[in-house]
Write a protein that binds this DNA or RNA. Sequence first.
RNA 1: CCCGCCGGACAGGCAGCCGCCCCGAUCUUUACCGGGGAGGAAAGUCCGGUCUCCACAGGGUGGCGUGCCGGCUAACAGCCGGGGGGUUCCGCUUAAAGCGGGGCUCACGGAAAGUGCCACAGAAAACAUACCGCCUGAGGCCUUGCGCCUCAGGUAAGGGUGAAAAGGUGCGGUAAGAGCGCACCGCGUCUCGAGCAAUCGGGAUGGCAGGGCAAACCCCACGUGGAGCAAGACCAAAUAGGGGACGAGCGGUGACCCGCCGCGCCAUAUGAGUCCCGGGUAGGUCGCUAGAGCGCCGCAGUAAUGCGGCGUCGAGAUGAAUGGCUGCCGCCCCGGCCCUAGCUGGGGAACAGAAACCGGCUUAUCGUCCGGCGGGCUGA
RNA 2: CGGGGCGUGGCGCAGCCCGGUAGCGCACCUGCCUUGGGCGCAGGGGGUCGGAGGUUCAAAUCCUCUCGCCCCGA
Length: 122
Amino acid sequence: MSTARFRFPKSARLLRSAEYRRIYDGGSKFVGPLFAAFYLRTQSGDPARVGYTTPRALGTSVERNRIKRRLREAVRVALPSLEPGWAIVFNPRRAALDAEFSRLTSEVQRLWGVLRARGTES
RNA sequence: CCCGCCGGACAGGCAGCCGCCCCGAUCUUUACCGGGGAGGAAAGUCCGGUCUCCACAGGGUGGCGUGCCGGCUAACAGCCGGGGGGUUCCGCUUAAAGCGGGGCUCACGGAAAGUGCCACAGAAAACAUACCGCCUGAGGCCUUGCGCCUCAGGUAAGGGUGAAAAGGUGCGGUAAGAGCGCACCGCGUCUCGAGCAAUCGGGAUGGCAGGGCAAACCCCACGUGGAGCAAGACCAAAUAGGGGACGAGCGGUGACCCGCCGCGCCAUAUGAGUCCCGGGUAGGUCGCUAGAGCGCCGCAGUAAUGCGGCGUCGAGAUGAAUGGCUGCCGCCCCGGCCCUAGCUGGGGAACAGAAACCGGCUUAUCGUCCGGCGGGCUGA
RNA sequence: CGGGGCGUGGCGCAGCCCGGUAGCGCACCUGCCUUGGGCGCAGGGGGUCGGAGGUUCAAAUCCUCUCGCCCCGA
């Protein structure tokens, strides 16, 4: 397995407030115990793009950063098995702060499964 | 050795794999290599500055801030040193006071510039006051006494109220009293000495002016323009406006009618299209990290701090990097193996994340170590 | 980065400016009324005034620090 498949450059991230707005308005919602996720099918040629939002209600800046970094690492490892063309925004819950890392990755895989099912029916 | 208070330092270390942000080299297509990557509080945003833009002749007033004295500093509400007050401890001494030393602590200018407030209680709460008392005199009453009642006056010793009642203690004095007189203490004024000063010490003198609150209004002295890196500078789409230039199609009409083609004419309304100019949004670039910098040494100073020399470069993001998973060693706690040493099993490691940059303050913080002060126990 | 507001019985609020008694409504408890309940009437209990320190004789109130929540502007 090539190391390049595990990278997580800026081209794979959402960097504009307008992009978040579009996904919230036109996307669908996935709900899990550790996070909620909004996803939207974009141009199928584009690479998959991911964003995270950690509002103040989640805790202090240290806790918010920790939640985002753990979730980002879980997504990074799972990124090669995600089909291109999806844009996803994660809304983590406070439970993601000290949940087992393996639970985070399995939750991400569960979301990937939902996306694969939606991709084949459309 | 243990406990408490105060001050200071540190904030586990070394590797492996996979990632993220910035810089540089190779390459210029993927990629790959090297270097760097959170804190003592980065926090709260309570102060002060650097920097940027706006405003601005000078002065005054107002507002706001500061407030014992001296020093440090770019500046400060910070720091250092000193003075004074409060509180506590130790030693000496005493009738009580007092003297000396140490710790902690204080928003510590002015109450004889003016205004205001001081509940309840109390006679009276601020140009003081006579309620109960005490004393003197006059009158009256009888149960004749160190008596009682009334009136006139003297009095701040005593009682009582209060947070606070016009110096305190003692002696003298007096009808009873009173700084009325005296001694000591306190206070005011004058003066001498020490100190840059706050202030301290001594002497003379006045029988004593005067309640508290200015974190009530206020007065005095000093300081103070406003906003903030989303400051500010530059580049600049798409769309819709603004200014200007070029510009001619469509349309209408006419030669018998209709269709098509061509041509002529008409007038200015609509005004396509192209180009230029200007403002400016999205977006981008700069500001943006070498600075009152950090480390060591020397000198000056009680210290804060300053000066000099040498060395060194240690984040710069913008949906916002500094992470994930492991191993070994070290630290702390609990348990086991014969006590110690040692071995071994399990658990724990805080508060917290840069956003232009510095100097402070305040708050949060598992523990370990160092220094100072105080207390307790034990041993020599 | 800058500015503003609010924490007072279980709930919603006065009192704070100008310091001395913490009050109002709903809710709660007891009694009366009623066959019983509700309504009504009478009486009653309950508050570290977000926390700490200070000023003062005295602090919910004044001052300083601090915690939490909410709302604006660029």
